[in-house]
């Protein structure tokens, strides 16, 4: 058992559902989705809604890096959104201790016609970076991104890797206590991958809690000593990375 002081993220019996379009449009009135059957079997509510998380419980200690793996639609992004406070769970309780910085997607967070510097300023406002620290954070993020010569150019001229650098730099410069990364890490050129890995390690050694959802198992292997594998919104396995990844790889080969 971890002492309560050590726990950064404590989720108990979390259920999250999305309304199905079939329900909204009234089509498929007599259909029964797999998610519905599954939820019902597990004692959950039987509806035509799509249950993305079905009674998931997990506790993560402060200052740890945890990998989140699972197939597409397993519920990884939904879980990160619950931790970030973006999605209130329909059932269960979520206790998160610390300032959360989610880096979940690039779409919507960048304004393409604006320059790199303008986007850093805009993102700092969107991410609620305190006014007193804002300018220092923006300058640090600009330096870390390694895009100095391009920051005066509009972001529409940036490659997707450059956009990732910009967003990652700002999110990780604002000293997050809990950093949530979804899929978008582990990409980009080798140099930035190495620098972003080092930054994540520095954050973890500085007692930040990091949760990384990724299909890049090598990235997870490198960054995270612990892994949570979820399928169909239910934890399939949790534990030390080599053990979980070996079972996960076996399941994919079957």
């Amino acid at each position: 058992m971890h002492s309560p002081d050590e726990i950064a993220i404590d989720l108990r019996d979390i259920w999250v559902k999305y309304a199905s379009d079939r329900k909204r449009t009234g089509a498929n009135l007599f259909g029964t989705s797999r998610s519905r059957q599954h939820a019902h079997q597990r004692g959950g509510p039987a509806t035509t809604d799509l249950w993305a998380l079905q009674g998931l419980s997990v506790s993560l200690r402060k200052g740890t890096a945890t990998g989140l793996i699972g197939r597409n639609g397993a519920g990884k992004s939904t879980l990160l959104r619950v931790i970030a406070g973006i999605l209130p769970p329909h059932r269960g309780s979520a206790h998160v201790t610390g300032r959360v910085t989610p880096l979940l997607a690039l779409s919507g967070s960048l304004a393409e016609p604006l320059t790199g510097w303008e986007n850093l300023r805009r993102m700092a406002i969107l991410r609620q970076v305190p006014t007193r620290q804002r300018e220092a954070v923006i300058q640090d993020a600009g330096r870390f991104s390694g895009l100095a010569e391009r920051l005066e150019d509009p972001v529409r001229t940036f490659s997707s890797g450059m956009k990732l650098r910009l967003a990652f730099s700002l999110a990780t410069t604002s000293e997050p206590e809990i950093l949530l990364l979804d899929e978008i890490v582990g990409t980009g050129d080798k140099d930035f991958q190495a620098r972003s890995s080092k930054r994540i390690r520095d954050l973890v050694s500085g007692s930040a809690t990091v949760v990384v959802a990724s299909h890049s198992l090598s990235f997870i292997e490198e960054m995270c000593p612990h892994v949570l594998w979820i399928e169909g919104g239910i934890p399939r396995m949790a534990g030390e990375t080599p053990n979980v990844l070996s079972r996960y790889r076996e399941s994919r080969e079957q």
């Binding site: 959104r81 970030a84 406070g85 973006i86 979940l104 997607a105 919507g108 967070s109 969107l126 609620q128």
Partner: peptide, 11 residues
């Protein structure tokens, strides 16, 4: 129209 942002930030 801001759903992409709503899904990624807790504003």
């Amino acid at each position: 129209s801001r759903s992409a942002l709503i899904k990624t930030l807790d504003l």
